[in-house]
Nucleic acid binder design. Sequence first.
DNA 1: GGCTGCGATGTTATGTTGTAACTTCATGCC
DNA 2: GGCATGAAGTTACAACATAACATCGCAGCC
Lengths: 152, 152
Amino acid sequence: MAIHDHHEHAGNDLTRAAQTTLEKSGEQWTSMRERVFEALAGFDKPASAYDIAEAVSKAEGRRVAANSVYRILDLFVGANLVRRVESANAYVANAHPDCLHDCIFLVCDSCGQTTHIDDDAITKTVRSAAKNTGFSPVRPVIEVRGKCADCD
Amino acid sequence: MAIHDHHEHAGNDLTRAAQTTLEKSGEQWTSMRERVFEALAGFDKPASAYDIAEAVSKAEGRRVAANSVYRILDLFVGANLVRRVESANAYVANAHPDCLHDCIFLVCDSCGQTTHIDDDAITKTVRSAAKNTGFSPVRPVIEVRGKCADCD
DNA sequence: GGCTGCGATGTTATGTTGTAACTTCATGCC
DNA sequence: GGCATGAAGTTACAACATAACATCGCAGCC
């Protein structure tokens, strides 16, 4: 699937990888951050900040404000632990926070399932097409809306 | 800029082209629709539905609800008169409603200026990468965030 | 003329997503 | 203890989007 090899983390392994990556970037891995990360990783499709706030609230037995979740998500996105799916206003945990990619999301319009592919050839082409028009690309957003194999 | 040649409309010409395209798709070109289209075309960067509602309200001297604007924008997007910039929650008039493209937006994070390129080679590659994973692509969303030549 | 059907628009309300400003809490350090 | 700092809580609000229902205007028909 990916052009190069890298390790895909899952479950506790993923959480540990996230923790390591975050700490390497000089940030703390707090229990609140862990809960947010695990809540997000527990969804099988992109989750909104409010979805996460609700999940954490439930798990926690107390009210957690969306606000706090946003703060943490922003931090996570900056540290590559989490990606934002722009066309869905939602977030997904990054299965390999330890390597940096422009990534491509395939978002099913029926069921919301979102799969993630890395294709550096495509993203490089997009970046250079942008550069050719005098634009300095920072972050390509490449998402494909359509139907997943199950819904098709 | 574009891979193939097509006519870029502007000003009144663009409005007429939009009208023609919309009518060809079996919809009416009402005065309200014209006002919304012209308001959008009058912005030099992507405009939100609320921006447009405000512009039309001002031009009209009466309050126009965002709601009505959304309805018309949805119609326009469906008829290819207008494109939605997902990563900006905003809309732009399509300079050539008469031909259908997956299109690529370059969005400046500083000034909001958004330029539009058509590169069918890229979009075809993206579509086929999606197909290769069993996904049926319907609408690629390809946007590049970065800095425009002026802001760089 | 008056009735009816229909598409467009208006109106009001509400849901969802995202930020801002300020407070409180926990921890480490002096 | 007192204080600095960063995390998290609280409250308020701004921005984006949709839903439900009322009204208007016009074409077709009796």
